[in-house]
Amino acid sequence: MKSLRPWLQSALLAAGSVVFLFPLWWMVVVSLETPKRAGAAMTGQDGVALWPADPQWGNYAEALAEMGSEPWVGFVNALANSIVVTTLVVIGTVLSSSLVGFAFARLRWRGRGALFTLMLATMMLPGQVTLIPLFLLFRGLGWIDTILPLAVPAFFGNAFFIFMYRQFIVQVPESLVEAAKVDGHGWIGIWWTVILPLCRPVTAICAVFTFIGTWNDFMGPLVYLHAEEQSTLAVALNSFRNQYGGLDDVHLLMAASLVTMLPCILLFIAAQRQFVEGLARGAVKG
């Protein structure tokens, strides 16, 4: 197929970028406006400038201070909770999914094919279906109002990422595994020292997707954590929206929303190269 001319390619990409970046730009601009101009922009009474004439940087401090019942405390608590939960879930998902993927790819054991199919079938189950049974299970274990229901399941693998790891590891030459055996490693040692470092592109995808999914997860923390001091940022933002959802406070809502999503944007930029490489590999080899 003949490729598009460079200028046309650039024009199409630029147009696509504008479509995707518009909401972000709108949020940034509104978050820096005065309450009156932000409200007008929200109702469509007035357009927004490309960049505010007088950026109100103080909106950010005000929004974060107002999150929760005590100034700053609500935000700091929610941020800390999000960091703890997300870190645990990312570590758990990467470790468990890569280990199980390795076992499916390299170990020969009875029932491997059937279990792999069963595992893939679990991907068809919507999260809502398992919500109530899981809630009952965690309540039975006495885990409600702790972060355990959010973090512990991550250490039992994620079907989609197990599948991705398995597809990637199958491509790793068998001789590398054998060389590691001759060098004195057992299965766990081979996974840790040889396979996991080679899976960096898949790990980047797994980590970024898991981070974004967990950081933005609203349902899990809402169901399992009930006290304000246990809230994650997503739940705290929702409370903030309930409290400051009026037209006069839309600038604060945008500021709080932007701060909430900032780590995801930064992470994506940092891991972009690995991420895109991993997706490309998945496309070719998976």
């Binding site: 001789s175 054998e178 590691a180 001759v182 490693h185 080679l198 960096r200």
Partner: peptide
């Protein structure tokens, strides 16, 4: 006895160098 305890070293056809 496990490969690592046989006091052998092996050179593979595709070298099997750890790429990382």
């Amino acid at each position: 006895i496990a490969p690592s305890d046989r006091d052998i070293a092996m050179v593979f056809q595709n070298y099997a160098l750890y790429p990382h």
